[in-house]
Design a protein around this nucleic acid. Sequence first.
DNA 1: GGAATTCCTACTAAATAACTAGGGATTAGG
DNA 2: CCTAATCCCTAGTTATTTAGTAGGAATTCC
Lengths: 158, 158
Amino acid sequence: MILSTKGRYGVKAAFDLALRFGEGPVPLKNIAERQNISDPYLEQIIAVLRKDGLVSSVRGAQGGYFLSKDPKRITVGDIIRSLEGPLAPSECVLDDQDNECIRADYCVTRIIWEKIKESIDDVINSISLQDMVDDYKRIGNNYLDTKGEDNSDQTSIS
Amino acid sequence: MILSTKGRYGVKAAFDLALRFGEGPVPLKNIAERQNISDPYLEQIIAVLRKDGLVSSVRGAQGGYFLSKDPKRITVGDIIRSLEGPLAPSECVLDDQDNECIRADYCVTRIIWEKIKESIDDVINSISLQDMVDDYKRIGNNYLDTKGEDNSDQTSIS
DNA sequence: GGAATTCCTACTAAATAACTAGGGATTAGG
DNA sequence: CCTAATCCCTAGTTATTTAGTAGGAATTCC
């Protein structure tokens, strides 16, 4: 799997927050329940997003989390990179210069790794959280609107 | 890293064989030396490619490996899928139907995983081993033509 | 004050990655 | 037929990562 549960859960949690953007802080417990993730594990995940400035928090009772910016201005790539680091197929196409391999100019396989990386980045950078919300509303489903009264088979981890 | 060393070494080895396609069996030792991979580890990798019918072998002295098909007809995707399995970002977009998640129709994140998978597949399926050989010759380098006499700094793992 | 919440650190079991080790089977060439 | 070169196969090993769990301290609303 290219993405670990961290990245996948992170995107789901971010989407959950995007759906409720502007409605005040959302308790982690609610997100975890709706997205079917264990509370303390999601806690760790969301802590990373917070440190990277993507999510903000309010402590104490009635507290919770919310997106730091408008969902239009946060991409899926922002979330994934925060949690997984850059999605490079190989070390030699990471963005930092320390990983420049010696034969970069000559390396034939490197050309391929670069193409893969570019195509992934194109996809994840082009999708904002707002796009996900729009998709969700367009599809017209409401499986997350029912607040806990019908979570019988929320087994989809995706 | 999206690709493990298996996939990366596999592509390098396959490229090495493509460069020498039609010249008879190439001993694994030579490939390992040129590509800077440990012999027994490369052995395991190439065994998988052989089982998947991408590479053939001749046993005994003067034996070795060669591509089962013309390099034009083997893609980088064939090699990678053989060694790494399908490059899916998440379970729910694997090709086999067992992994269909229950809420597939509704799952918003799934749309993203599908787009990522498609874009990766597009890239790796569109590049043949012959394309790599052509690239290599076009660039005009020859760092692998010197048969072992100058392998001082072959540290590029890429 | 008490309940709800975030915040933080440490631990752990299982899986995976990236090899290494050792030897058996096969074949070309002398 | 002998020997060296080579493929073939199984098993072990070490380190890292993954996917959590455990427990409690700090903060804030009511």
